[in-house]
Amino acid sequence: MSELVTGEAVALELRPARLPSRAMAIVIDLIVAMVVYIAVTVALVAASASLDDAAQVALSIAAFLLVLVGGPIAVETLSHGRSLGKLAVGLRVVRDDGGPIRFRHALVRGAIGVIEILMTFGVVACIASLVSARGRRLGDVFAGTLVVRERIPVGPSGFLPPPPPWLAGRFSGLDLSAVPDGLWLAIRQYLTRMHQLDPQVGWAMAERLASDLAAHTGTPAPQDVPPGAYLAAVVQERQAREARRAYGSGTTEAGPSPASRPGPGVGVQGGYPYPGAQPAAPLSPQPPASYGVEAAPEGPAPAVPPEGRSASGFVPPA
């Protein structure tokens, strides 16, 4: 099983699709494509009966490229990785970091698919899928994509913790085009598991990831922001851009999630680990009234933040 996070900020536990399910999806897609190709060919033959042989051959080649090559590329691009066969089987093509594919991914997959599926009758694709640890064919390897199963229950622990509210929109001007997909995946895996790590280890890992991210964006990480919060804010900014690009919507607002709550024995600062944290001491029970001690009123006492610090635990920027 492989944990992936989609570009729409949905963390999923997804299994990479294996050869049987992928073969079934490809067969369905090929049947649909062949029916359309035959219908287009018959229509072209009827319409071009008065043309010479060279023109008819050119039209046949154009129909082949348009239907059997351009058709799958257009469908995967417009449906964000869900062709008719994949939709029927419950599969989807995603990027290596779990985000939705774009035209260039579908173009590479479709171009190489002509060789490894159509020209070799799927033999090369089957061998590559069996050899690959994640069941990828050559088109997936060159395009940087992965076919995954969608119909898997969502686990409650995979949600990304939201950044502090005062960081919203602060990194809207960052250039994220040079950040590789592998780094995004590493950052998301850290954010979903940071409360399970030792505070010192988590802080060092966050600093290293923040340094790598700043090196690719060309803008140094702010010194007044904890590295974990910086990573969460930049990931949220990327998710908002992905949502606007894919669906034309506005910025996404990440609400509170179970992963943003500190677990037992984890020191947090505004929901993010910091070095030197000590495990929280267990609450002592209220003494009975028979000992002459006045019982404390029920309900949690209001937390009073220190001077100059917000209730979230972060120092807001000046």
Rank of each mutant, 00 (worst) to 15 (best):
G7D: 04
P20K: 00
V27T: 15
I28M: 09
D29E: 08
I31N: 05
I31R: 09
I31M: 07
I31G: 12
V35D: 14
V35P: 06
A39I: 14
V40M: 05
V42N: 11
A43D: 06
V45E: 09
A46F: 07
A49H: 15
S50C: 13
D53G: 14
A54Y: 07
V57S: 09
A62Y: 15
G70P: 06
G70E: 13
P72I: 10
I73N: 02
T77C: 00
L78A: 10
H80G: 06
R82F: 08
L87P: 10
V89K: 02
L91I: 09
R92I: 10
R95C: 13
D97M: 07
I101P: 00
R102C: 05
F103C: 06
A106M: 01
G110T: 13
I112E: 06
V114S: 11
E116A: 05
E116W: 01
E116N: 09
L118K: 06
G122R: 03
G122A: 00
G135N: 01
L138F: 08
D140A: 04
F142Y: 05
A143R: 02
A143K: 06
G144M: 01
G144N: 11
E150A: 14
P153M: 09
V154L: 13
P156A: 13
L160E: 03
P162S: 12
P162D: 03
P163L: 02
P165C: 06
P165H: 11
R170I: 14
R170P: 04
F171R: 10
L174G: 14
S177K: 07
A178I: 02
T192D: 02
Q196I: 08
Q200M: 11
G202D: 08
R208A: 09
S211M: 09
D212E: 15
A214Q: 10
A214V: 04
A214T: 11
H216P: 06
G218M: 01
P220V: 02
A221D: 02
P222F: 00
P227L: 00
P227R: 01
A229F: 02
A232I: 15
V234D: 04
V234I: 10
E237A: 13
A240P: 01
A243Q: 05
R244W: 15
R245N: 13
T251K: 06
T252F: 02
T252H: 02
G255W: 09
G255F: 12
G255Y: 08
P256M: 13
P256N: 07
S257L: 04
P258C: 04
A259Y: 10
R261N: 14
R261E: 14
P262C: 04
P264F: 13
P264C: 01
V268W: 00
Q269E: 08
A280M: 03
A280D: 08
P282C: 01
Q286R: 14
P287F: 12
A289P: 05
V293M: 04
A295E: 05
A301D: 13
A301N: 14
P302S: 08
P305M: 04
E307Q: 02
A311R: 09
F314D: 10
P316G: 03
P317R: 11
